[in-house]
Nucleic acid binder design. Structure first.
Length: 545
RNA sequence: GGACCCGUAGCUCAGCUGGAUAGAGCGUCGGCUUGCGGAGCCGAAGGCCAUAUGUUCGAAUCAUAUCGGGUUCACCA
């Protein structure tokens, strides 16, 4: 349709224009373009005059049932019902503008030896959904995870753990699986506290941190290996519970370290400078800040490991793009690491992209792991469950996860999420539960009747037309979400879609009506579209709840 | 202090590749109700889109400045 208009503009005014059709307020028509106003300047003529001239030609094509010029020079199009119905039935035609690429994305990266909280859930859910978008865009997607299994935080946990075990690993084995997360969380918190308050403990923890690279005792190895395994089990379980798709590989900092350090050394001097024994990258020249990649004691730091990780990913997958989703605190930091990586390894140019998220704040106040004021993910599941059951519904993890995912995904990537448990759990308004319910309700109608009817364009009511037109918009919305890697567009759309359906539903009887076959067909397309959209968000669309 | 991000209704947010009267949800107030699942629908009130200047036929959207908030600034991760 837009190419047709471009063509007419060219014939009439000999100008190449970039005609984009937008969806105006329904009162104006089905589609709209402001091309006349854009042409006003180059042509030196009044926009309405140009619009009128274009409108005449456009009417002659016979493709539109109505062409209007309105306002300062908009051209509004109304198409025939047949076109609306056709478009609603062909929503899967998402044209991917770019050709398929190989893409790597970290869909979760919590550290072992620490507990997972709501912030980890946010990161994992968003990253996984972005991976879904990359899937939809026909890329070859590898979902991976990355975990910090070495360093200071390990030292802190090991300090408490070794004291707890006191030479007897059996003391860990007797801890029931259900209590491990809390236990590990406490171990880390205790070690953290000791590190801050006690100089002797600090020295010991520093040594235990060093041992995460080169263990000095058999018991260290035993405890470390067991707790690390526990952590990964825990992480995998929770991430799956959140509705994330499985990852294909787990990268570890302990593996990345060697690669990174070697690369840093190979480019010193040059990319890196030596300063008091440390190897430093002058990130301040690249919109970041000066940062040590290798410490004065020769040990690799976080940045070196991220650099090494980029190499590992490249060796394994040779991706055209590699996405890392992190909190905004790491934004400048990653700018530096990426700049350094591109200088050391030209083949990594323009590959790694850091997508930074906002922070999760609790409506009750700031979240702080130090004060223990964090929302534990298991607790959150329980809250959703209770709220749904309080409404007389039955809930399982899949439904609770859907509600949770939506809460995180509905805001623009980069915005903070203010997580109000009561609001998230309220189940009314713009929530995942509303959409899940909307889907279940539509499915229940479909259960009661025979399918096989067809939508009849000649009898569309205004509500039916609005609903079908909204359904037809699906492809455009998903395309935009994929292009921008912003899932929230889909959330906004699906909510509007469900609202449109509820208006239709309020106005029309489906079952038993003389137009039953026609309406059932509409409900069916609607339910499928809603389900598909929720699917992209990783939200399960239940048939009943 | 430097760099980056943000400031839209009482609250939480969309809208930002410049376009028609700035939209939702929650909350408030008022309707609908013998219903295919009311977790709904309809309506009302509520906005100098932080402020100022500029660019433009046209600015919530772009630019500059100011004010207010956040993040970050090497041997932690």
């Amino acid at each position: 349709m837009d190419t047709k208009i471009t063509q007419i503009v060219h014939e009439l005014f000999a100008i190449d224009s970039d005609v984009k059709l937008t969806r105006p307020d329904p009162q104006f028509g089905d589609y709209s373009t402001n091309v006349a106003m854009q042409l006003a300047r180059p042509l030196g003529r009044a926009p309405r005059e140009i619009a009128d001239e274009l409108a005449v030609k456009l009417r002659e094509t016979g493709e539109f049932s109505n062409v209007d010029v309105a306002g300062p020079g908009f051209i509004n199009f109304t198409v025939d019902n047949t076109i609306i119905v056709q478009a609603a039935l062909q929503t899967n035609a998402i044209v991917s503008s770019t050709s398929s690429a190989t893409v790597v994305i970290e869909t979760n990266n919590p550290n072992p030896f620490k507990a997972m909280h709501i912030g980890h859930a946010f990161n994992a859910i968003l990253a996984d959904t972005i991976a879904n978008l990359l899937d939809v865009a026909q890329h070859h997607v590898y979902r991976v995870s990355y975990h910090g299994d070495v360093g200071l935080h390990v030292g802190k946990s090991m300090y408490s753990l070794l004291r707890y075990v006191d030479g007897d690993i059996e003391k860990l084995h007797v801890i029931p699986e259900s209590e491990r997360n809390t236990f590990m969380s406490k171990m880390y918190a205790d070690g953290s506290k000791a590190y801050k308050e006690d100089d002797a403990a600090k020295a010991e923890i520093d040594d235990l941190a060093r041992q995460s690279f080169e263990p000095a005792s058999a018991i260290y190895v035993q405890v470390y290996d067991l707790c690390k395994a526990w952590s990964f089990e825990q992480i995998d379980t929770i991430v799956a519970r959140l509705g994330n798709k499985p990852t294909v590989k787990r990268f570890l900092e302990s593996d990345a370290d060697m690669y990174g350090v070697r690369t840093v050394r190979a480019h010193t001097p040059g990319v890196f400078q030596e300063s008091n024994g440390a190897l430093v990258f002058e990130g301040s020249k690249y919109g970041s800040f000066d940062n040590a990649f290798v410490a004065g004691n020769g040990r690799g730091l976080y940045a070196a490991r991220d650099l090494g990780l980029m190499q590992l990913k490249n060796e394994q997958y040779h991706p055209q793009k590699s996405y890392i989703v992190t909190a905004e605190e790491q934004r400048d930091y990653f700018k530096g690491v990426i700049a350094a990586a591109e200088l050391c390894l030209p083949e990594l140019k323009d590959v790694t992209v850091n997508i930074s998220t906002g922070t999760v704040k609790l409506a009750t106040g700031k979240m702080s792991s130090r004060d223990g004021d964090v929302l534990e993910i298991g607790w959150l599941f329980e809250q959703f469950k209770q709220a749904i059951e309080a409404r007389g519904g039955t809930s399982d993890d899949v439904i609770a996860a859907g509600a949770m995912r939506y809460q995180f995904l509905k805001v623009r990537v980069g915005s903070d999420v203010v997580f109000d448990v009561n609001e998230a759990v309220s189940l009314t308004g713009n929530t995942g539960s509303y959409l899940q319910y909307a889907h279940a309700r539509a499915r229940r109608i479909l259960e009661k009747v025979n399918a096989g009817g067809k939508i009849d364009p000649t009898i569309l009511s205004s509500q039916e037309r609005l609903l079908l037109s909204k359904i037809a918009e699906y492809g455009e919305i998903v395309e935009r979400s994929c292009r921008e890697l912003m899932p929230h567009h889909i959330c906004t759309y699906l909510f509007e879609l469900a609202q449109e359906f509820n208006r239709f539903y309020e106005a029309h009887q489906v079952v038993g009506d003389e137009y039953e076959l026609h309406r059932v067909a509409i409900v069916s397309v609607y339910a499928d579209t809603l389900k598909r959209g929720l699917g992209v968000l990783g939200i399960f669309a239940p048939d009943e709840m």
